[in-house]
Amino acid sequence: MGQAVGSTSGNLEEGALRDVARPDMPPRDRTGHSIVVRISHWLIVAAVFALTLSGTNILTSHPRLYWGETGNVNDEPWLVIPIPASRRSVPTAYDFRLEDRNGWSRNLHFEAAWVLVLTGLVYGLWGFASGHFRRDLIPGRGDRNWRAFSATVAKYARHFLRKEPLPTDEIAYNPLQRVTYLVVIFLLFPAIIASGLAMSPYLAAAWPGLVEFFGGRQSARSFHFLLVSGLLGFAVVHVILVKVSGFSRLLRGMTIGHG
């Protein structure tokens, strides 16, 4: 696979499927991301953008978070988000009210969530079937240890602290990068989606266990917020690291598919 650099992506596809059974196959050149990765990456970036925008609007109608099943202005919040509210009934530190944008925001939120979920499903199924996860995301045998991770951390620390240049020609994702992607793909996104679904009264009726899993409706709302904050934190660091690791080369890889 790794050797197939320079061939057309159609050939890479064929190779990917053939390689499924081979353990520790050489990684694919990351400047030649598969068309599935490239399309799903940007669809998900677009969906996350729309979800964040609309989610923030929705949050302004009640920027207070609670634990447990219920919570309203008569209850003690564990967090008052320091933003103005779009409702008169919600006390904030501001003396003005935002415009109510819940209408289109909720529409956009649910539509973008579908884009995210459906794209994620395609990407996930393909990732398993093609061997992408096994080959490119799970750290190689020799890299599943702290030494490999701390070596990566040290490399970036030297770059940021001592301005030491980073290698810009690495073929594969580094071990830390792999683990981070795996956490985002298999923990963060599923948990964000599940906590979002737990807030739907429809699904709460069908799957009460989902709400109980998060410790109640308001807890699900709190977790949704916290998990999304984590995802946005990832996105910021992610873009910074892409920037310092050869921005245009990596972006070409993630868009047109060759460096």
Partner: peptide, 12 residues
């Protein structure tokens, strides 16, 4: 039952 407003607040 719970009244769960789309704004985010709720009570039982």
């Amino acid at each position: 039952t719970e009244v769960a407003c789309e704004e985010g607040w709720s009570y039982i």
